[in-house]
Computed example of a mutant assay.
Amino acid sequence: MSRLLLLLLMAAAIHNSHAREGLVVVANTHYRSPTLTLEQVRNLFMGGNAGLALKPVALPLNNHTRLLFNAHVMGLPEKRIQSYWAQMKFTGRRVPPAILHSEQDVVSYLLENPETVSYLPADQPLPDNLKVLYWAGN
């Protein structure tokens, strides 16, 4: 019986750790789109405008949230994304998203800059002025 209880507790802990790894794409509420599609999010963060007037900002390399975003939303490893941006910068075709130091910096930046968009952990508390445009859960 205690072995079954231990297994159930372990399963619940694993489930909760995966739930915390969900991501949201958020923007300043001045942007009025009800939601973004996965394709629109990918286009925005790869330098396209996806028909939207939003400017993306990102977290630094090796940030856990960034790694999750790249894997689960972009569908690309960090090396591939860095290679893409090296090529885009070299040819002068696109500029990568600005890099902010932390999730808290992202929240502050979005609040101060209308028409900006970024990603955060799904369990990150959000001020009323930020709107979830896309949710990526496991």
Rank of each mutant, 00 (worst) to 15 (best):
R3W: 09
L4I: 04
L6V: 12
A13R: 10
S17H: 02
S17F: 03
E21H: 09
G22I: 01
V24T: 09
V25E: 01
V26N: 07
A27P: 02
A27V: 01
H30R: 08
Y31T: 09
Y31R: 04
R32Q: 12
P34N: 15
E39R: 02
V41M: 02
V41T: 06
F45H: 05
M46Y: 04
A50N: 08
A50C: 05
L52I: 13
A53C: 11
A53H: 15
L54S: 09
A58I: 01
N62K: 01
H64G: 04
H64L: 09
R66I: 03
R66N: 10
L67I: 13
L68H: 11
L68A: 15
V73S: 04
L76S: 02
P77M: 02
E78P: 07
E78C: 07
K79H: 07
K79I: 03
Q87A: 13
K89F: 07
K89G: 06
F90V: 08
R93Y: 09
H101K: 11
Y109M: 09
E112M: 07
V117W: 04
S118E: 08
Y119M: 08
P121W: 07
P121I: 02
D123Y: 06
Q124W: 04
P125N: 14
L126S: 10
L126R: 11
K131Q: 12
L133C: 05
A136M: 11
